[in-house]
Design a protein around this nucleic acid. Structure first.
Lengths: 222, 222
DNA sequence: GTCTATATGTTGATAGAC
DNA sequence: GTCTATCAACATATAGAC
């Protein structure tokens, strides 16, 4: 592996890094366009125009417009996942961690409406993400399932909170808050949005349903 | 008023009816296109093509593409409202009626994905419905608020169910079910969809939160 | 990797004959 | 109300010179 000296800083790697940087810059621009013109309003021409580049040059970085969407989808997944993990990891396992992750996801979605729409809805006709990028999505769901199982094991939630139905109901809540906030108050921040402010109430409602009446440490019936 | 004989069947009215019929047919076609190509995939050209008409002729019926979207928005509002009312009206006032209306709305949304997306999300960049059509939307919300107030009066729900927060939380649930169903299982029916099947569970969860522990007839605290 | 040039297609909308 | 003709933009994508 490390035969050549400092391969990560050699001219080849520098060139690769430069290329990566251009791609990142192009995706930044794409996000700006989508925030102005809608997710469906993205075009190679407008991207090139804003990048000070001719439109055909963009095809050296992306194979097609679909390729751009796919890269944006992957970026959205990675960033939302990172935001959730960064918020959830330091918290104690169980409902506290789940709550923190949910808050972080909704906050991220409200702050990144274009990418969030691409992930939560399917606004681009004929666009389906690549299998590879879609795998990240399933990873996120597996993580959430594991956290629910842990919350059950800790006695925070009743055993039926580990069912797929409970997990789906949880995603319904998150999706609902995000959808209502973005559709009815676009451009309004997380803290002032009338729907994003309902996040904790919605989570309370959900956890109350899956908590034993006797409290967090009550014995689940055998 | 009724000076001329049978004005509703005279030649003038017949002509008007014919015009209305053409417009309805055009909107039917528009819905089909949106279901195939996405809400943003609608175009005057494709509409005219399928109607066996030249594209400029369509401008005799709609002032612009935005005008078509506005008519579709109005149609979606009217039909969803009608579906909700038809299901809710025969039911006894209170939670039963609210539950029936919610079920009907989600069923309608799943069965009419294109119009539902136009109503629930804002997928068309730069399109905002006319004030007149938007008024219908507020009418629907006022009806829902009145039903909640009635449920509180009947003792079905706690007084705080009449708050705007509770009402918003309710719409979050409906929006969440619809969004998840349409995004993750497009084309799957209401009865077999894994998310639309959660409708009753979600409503149970909501009503449980706003019900007194002692049961529907327990005294609300003074 | 950048550019020019170009093929090829689409769209929304208007003017004006019949 | 229908049509033809047309305008002016806009788009994706490719070929090939430098």
């Amino acid at each position: 592996m490390a035969i050549a000296a400092s391969p990560a800083t050699g001219p080849h790697m520098r060139r690769l890094a430069r290329r990566e940087q251009t791609i990142e810059e192009a995706l930044d621009t794409a996000v700006l366009i989508m925030e102005e013109a809608g997710v469906g309003g993205l075009s190679m021409s407008e991207m090139a125009r804003r990048l000070g580049m001719r439109q055909p040059s963009l095809y050296k970085y992306f194979p097609s417009l679909h390729g751009v969407y796919d890269a944006l989808f992957a970026r959205g997944l990675a960033r939302s996942y990172a935001a959730v993990q960064a918020a959830a990891e330091p918290l104690p396992a169980g409902v506290a961690r789940i709550r923190g992750g949910a808050r972080a996801l909704i906050r991220w979605a409200v702050q990144n409406p274009a990418l969030a729409q691409l992930l939560f809805w399917r606004p681009v006709p004929g666009f389906t993400p690549t299998e590879a990028t879609f795998a990240t999505s399933e990873q996120q769901m597996r993580w959430l399932g594991a956290e629910f199982a842990e919350a059950v094991r800790l006695g925070h939630l009743r055993p039926d909170a580990g069912s797929v139905e409970a997990l789906r109901l949880f995603t319904v809540l998150l999706s609902g808050v995000v959808s209502q906030q973005m559709a009815n108050q676009p451009g309004v921040g997380y803290d002032t949005g009338v729907f994003s402010s309902l996040t904790d109430t919605a989570l309370d409602m959900f956890f109350a349903r899956y908590t034993n009446p006797g409290g967090p440490d009550a014995d689940p019936r055998p």
